[in-house]
C-alpha cells in the first residue's frame, strides 16, 4: 500500500472550512444525496414544492437532516454527509445559481462573495492548514 488509509483521511481534517467527501460522509449522507438526486425529475420537483415535509417523510432521512434540508442549511448538510453536486439539485429547484448557493456557506452575503470572486477569489494564504496556520 502506498499510503496508509488512516493517515490519508486524517490529513483531510486539517483543511480549514472544508468537508472532504470521504466514504464515511458518503455513507452517512446516502439518503440525503439520493433524495436530492430525485429532484432531477420535474414531477418530483413539483411534488416536493407542494409539500416539502411530506416529500421528505418518504425517505429514510434523520429528523436532524430533514430539518437542515428544510432550512437549506448547507454547512450542516455537509456535516451530515451531503455532497454539493447532489445538493445542487435542491438549490436549482429553488432557482438559486451555484455561486449564490455556495455563498450561503461562507460568512459573506452573495454580493460580498461576488465581489471577492471578481477580485481574484479567496486567497489560499492562511487557508491551507489548521495546524500549520499557513
Amino acid at each position: 500500500m502506498k499510503q496508509n488509509i488512516h493517515e490519508y483521511l486524517a490529513e483531510f481534517e486539517d483543511i480549514p472550512g472544508t468537508r472532504v467527501y470521504t466514504a464515511a460522509r458518503a455513507r452517512k449522507g446516502y439518503w440525503i444525496n439520493q433524495f436530492a438526486m430525485s429532484l432531477m425529475k420535474a414531477e418530483n420537483r413539483t411534488r416536493f414544492k407542494a409539500d416539502e415535509k411530506a416529500y421528505l417523510d418518504e425517505w429514510p432521512i434523520s429528523d436532524e437532516a430533514k430539518e437542515a434540508l428544510l432550512a437549506r442549511d448547507y454547512n450542516r448538510l455537509l456535516d451530515l454527509g451531503g455532497n454539493v453536486y447532489f445538493l445542487s439539485k435542491l438549490f436549482s429547484t429553488d432557482g438559486l445559481s451555484f455561486a449564490e448557493a455556495v455563498s450561503t456557506m461562507t460568512d459573506m452575503s452573495f454580493p460580498e462573495y461576488q465581489a471577492m470572486m471578481a477580485k481574484g477569489g479567496r486567497s489560499p494564504e492562511g487557508n491551507r492548514s489548521i495546524k500549520g496556520g499557513y
Binding site: 472550512g17 468537508r19 448547507y74 454547512n75 454539493v84 455556495v102 456557506m105 470572486m117 487557508n127
Partner: peptide
C-alpha cells in the same frame, strides 16, 4: 464549492 472556505482560487 463548499463550506466556509468556498471561493478559494
Amino acid at each position: 464549492l463548499q463550506g466556509p472556505r468556498a471561493g478559494l482560487l
